[in-house]
């Protein structure tokens, strides 16, 4: 198992290098002037421009800058934020926990509730709970997260006042311990709902299809033969056997959730990497952009490895076939 993980981690290195290269090219192609963004929206002399370009090595070719960046990266240096006036890694580390909290909570909720709804729909196939869940899935699929987020704010924050409109803590709050956790959880509700709606819908759809498939298999006949109850059959036999496609979709939805968090964090002013990313794009703070996307790519790769490990845990046949 350790060897398997090591191989997968090594295989991720070229992927991440590709991500960095693609980012360099895309930023190069994007309109806008990084020097102007650094000095601010004021007229500057050509000498000063040259000075700034010199300081941040903006006149080097893209290839030179790429090599320099990768060289620094290998030493754990993600570069320097021109707007934040601090190392990119410090910025990202400070923004990572809120994002992990938001994305992690959303994915866990999407996985657990989506699987449950999928199994309920499958076992009630063709009857009203199935129809209800299918309709909800369709609606959730058609609803963009950022729009849902604004609706949630309009209704639950502004009109009803049940939840705060944004942020992770109240302004000026010094709550710590249990009260602090409650405060963060209270702020977390709306962004999580907005972020996990789409993910939950896709998990539900896959879980439903997969459970229907398992329910039609011969092994379920054997379970019925043993005279065990239907809830028991669903829990002990259908759940585990239908979980492989569900794990696949969660691994792959983790990527879209990480992408979705960029917009959701902006909508809810959630102080995570997504908000930092949109801010950095506006400020043309290229090193931060690259650093964050790289970080998101690392998280996506890790989720994929986790998915593969979960496969082996869920299905003994895969465990036997893989390298140990």
């Amino acid at each position: 198992m350790a060897r398997f993980v090591a191989v997968r981690l090594l295989a991720a290195i070229p992927v991440l290098l590709g991500v960095v290269l693609a980012l360099f090219l895309m930023i190069e192609l994007a309109p806008g002037d990084p020097i102007q963004a650094i000095v601010g929206d004021i007229p500057v002399s050509p000498e000063f421009r040259a000075q700034v370009a010199e300081k941040y090595r903006l006149d080097d070719s893209i290839w030179q800058r790429f090599m320099a960046y990768v060289g620094n990266l290998l030493q754990g240096d993600l570069g320097y934020s021109t707007a934040g006036r601090q190392p990119v890694s410090d910025l990202i580390w400070s923004r990572l926990p809120p994002t992990m909290l938001l994305v992690g909570t959303s994915l866990v909720l999407a996985a657990v509730l989506g699987t449950a709804f999928g199994m309920i729909a499958a076992s009630a196939k063709g009857r009203w709970p199935d129809g209800f869940i299918n309709t909800w899935v369709l609606v959730a699929f058609a609803t963009p997260g950022f729009w849902l987020g604004q609706l949630l704010i309009a209704l639950f924050a502004l009109r009803l006042g049940w939840f705060p409109t944004g942020g992770m803590r109240s302004i000026g709050s010094q709550e710590a311990g249990w009260a602090g956790i409650v405060e963060v959880a209270h702020h977390l509700v709306l962004p999580v709902v907005a972020l996990c709606s789409l993910e939950m819908a896709s998990v539900t759809r896959v879980a439903r299809a997969s459970s229907i498939e398992v329910l039609s298999q011969d092994q379920i006949t054997t379970a019925r033969l043993k005279g065990i109850s239907r809830p028991h059959i669903l829990r002990r036999h259908v759940l585990r056997n239908s979980l492989l496609p569900v794990v696949t979709v969660i691994g792959f939805r983790a990527g879209t959730a990480l992408a979705g968090t960029v917009l959701i964090e902006s909508v809810f002013s959630w102080p995570g990497m997504g908000l930092l990313l949109t801010d950095s794009i506006v400020r043309r703070d290229n090193q931060v952009i690259i650093g964050i996307v790289l970080m998101l790519a690392v998280m996506a790769v890790l989720m994929n490895i986790l998915t593969d490990i979960l496969y082996g845990i869920l299905d003994p046949r895969i465990r036997a076939g893989g390298s140990r």
């Binding site: 092994q219 005279g227 003994p316």
Partner: peptide
Amino acid sequence: LSYLNPTMRIGQQIAEG
């Protein structure tokens, strides 16, 4: 093969009955 649960040990499957 198709009538046994592939993810459960034989002993558990017998015990259920």
